[in-house]
């Protein structure tokens, strides 16, 4: 194991609350500078796993090394090196965005001037003097991430930062997360959005019922799935019979608006379609993490 290059090492941690097993033997490592996603539906054990790594909870068994140290019991030496954004937006009452950052910064002995940089980073410079409760959901979420970053930590933990945001706010936040990674931070984050993890993460651990079902870069997970690619054309571009006859096509079917072809060898199929000039309304959809989840658990993914 590459001990000194790993930001987080988790070995076989378990945690039960009475009858309920929240985390059931989870192991993984996160390299320094990596963007690591923990993905799964609600109740999969993502948050508990994160809280054990942060040192907020003691695992029943197993071992955690965070930047080479044990986070439990409360390790004051470690705290300045980690930044944690909590699931709820935790703020002090009635303070403006800038004052929130200054107050959280003061807990770490950070100079008040840092607040302005952080607001800039998360795109809230023009909201510096707004009180926290007057910000929109997306703005609050960005502010809480800024509060997690204000002391310049090495490892950042984000628990569902994009939950309950509208699509535009989510995309804005993705830019923020990428900017954080560019600063050389290690990011460990949980989400239940599969598409998002696919776009942002270097590696993804897919969790369900307290276990990690798969752990790889998103592209590898999808490729390893051996799921067919779906090629969709406008209805009438080609008949179902002609489509089924093409080389490499496994199945073709049609509804009122479109013709869908399933294939595991999209290249010859697409060139055959091009030869016939039948590319009207062409869409190609490769397998996604959703398909991976379906394949791993046998059930449809529902966030």
């Amino acid at each position: 194991m590459t001990g000194e290059r790993s930001a987080v090492v988790v070995r076989d941690i378990r945690k039960s609350y009475g009858e309920l097993t929240a985390v059931d033997g989870v192991s993984f490592t996160v390299a320094e500078g990596e963007f690591f996603g923990i993905l799964g539906p609600n109740g999969a054990g993502k948050t508990t796993t994160l809280e054990i790594i942060e040192g907020l909870r003691e695992p029943d068994s197993g071992e955690v090394r965070l930047l080479g140290e044990s986070p439990w019991p409360r390790n004051v030496k470690l705290l300045p090196r980690i930044g944690v954004q909590l699931q709820a937006s935790s703020f002090f009452e009635k303070l403006t965005a800038k004052e929130q950052l200054q107050t959280f910064g003061a807990l770490y002995g950070v100079s008040p001037g840092t607040a302005a940089d952080m607001l800039e980073l998360v795109g809230l410079a023009d909201k510096a003097n707004e009180q926290e409760n007057k910000l929109s959901g997306g703005q609050r979420q960005r502010l809480s991430i800024a509060c997690a970053l204000v002391h310049d930590p090495d490892v950042v933990f984000l628990d569902e930062p994009t939950a309950a945001l509208d699509p535009q706010a989510r995309r804005n936040l993705w830019d923020v997360l990428r900017a954080i990674q560019e600063r050389g931070k290690t990011i460990v984050y949980t989400t239940h959005y599969l598409d998002e993890a696919e776009i942002l993460c270097d590696r993804v651990a897919i969790m369900d019922e307290g276990r990690i079902l798969a752990l790889d870069p998103p592209a590898v997970l999808v490729r390893g799935l051996d799921a067919p690619t779906h090629v969709t054309l406008q209805k009438g571009a080609l008949s179902v019979v002609d489509a089924s006859a093409l080389d490499g096509v496994e199945e073709a079917h049609e509804n009122e608006v479109s013709l869908t072809i399933s294939t595991r060898r999209p290249a010859p199929v697409l060139s055959a379609l091009a030869e016939r000039g039948a590319l009207d309304g062409l869409q190609v959809r490769a397998a996604t993490l959703e398909d991976v989840f379906l394949d791993l658990t046998g059930r449809e993914y529902r966030a």
Binding site: L56, L79, V84, Q87, S90, F91, F104, Y108
Partner: peptide, 17 residues
Amino acid sequence: VSWRRKQVLRRIRLAPV
């Protein structure tokens, strides 16, 4: 109560203070 409910207490516990 408000700090516990809004998890400000947890956030403070995660700071070296």
